[in-house]
């Protein structure tokens, strides 16, 4: 199980994800950068005890932040948009 939580870093809860949830029954997570779609699917199914239809992933580029002259960059990360089987749902507000 420890591996599952290593893959799924945290749920994302924003205006956009709220919309996706309402319209397409999709939930989003920040996930490990090395994880592939299959691993993510298995992890989500096990952790939340649900059925997953599809998983789409995006490599997110960290924002470039500047402080005076110094340029800095936030870390890159991977986002997974998980589409649940119809009728399935996840409530994960408590972990936010």
């Amino acid at each position: 199980m420890i591996k599952d939580y290593d893959i799924i870093r945290r749920p994302l809860n924003t205006e956009k994800t709220t919309l996706q949830k309402e319209l397409f029954n999709q939930v989003s997570f920040e996930v490990d950068r090395q994880a592939n779609r299959m691993e993510i699917k298995d992890a989500v199914e096990r952790i939340f005890n649900t059925k997953v239809q599809t998983v789409r992933t995006i490599q997110m580029k960290g924002k470039v932040k500047r402080r005076g002259k110094v340029l800095g960059k936030r870390r890159d990360w991977k986002k997974a948009i998980v589409r649940l089987m119809p009728g399935q749902r996840i409530d994960f507000f408590e972990g936010v």
Partner: peptide, 16 residues
Amino acid sequence: KGFRKGKAPRKVLEAR
């Protein structure tokens, strides 16, 4: 975080 002012859904507010 993640929501603009006034755009947070009721559920999020309730939870928090």
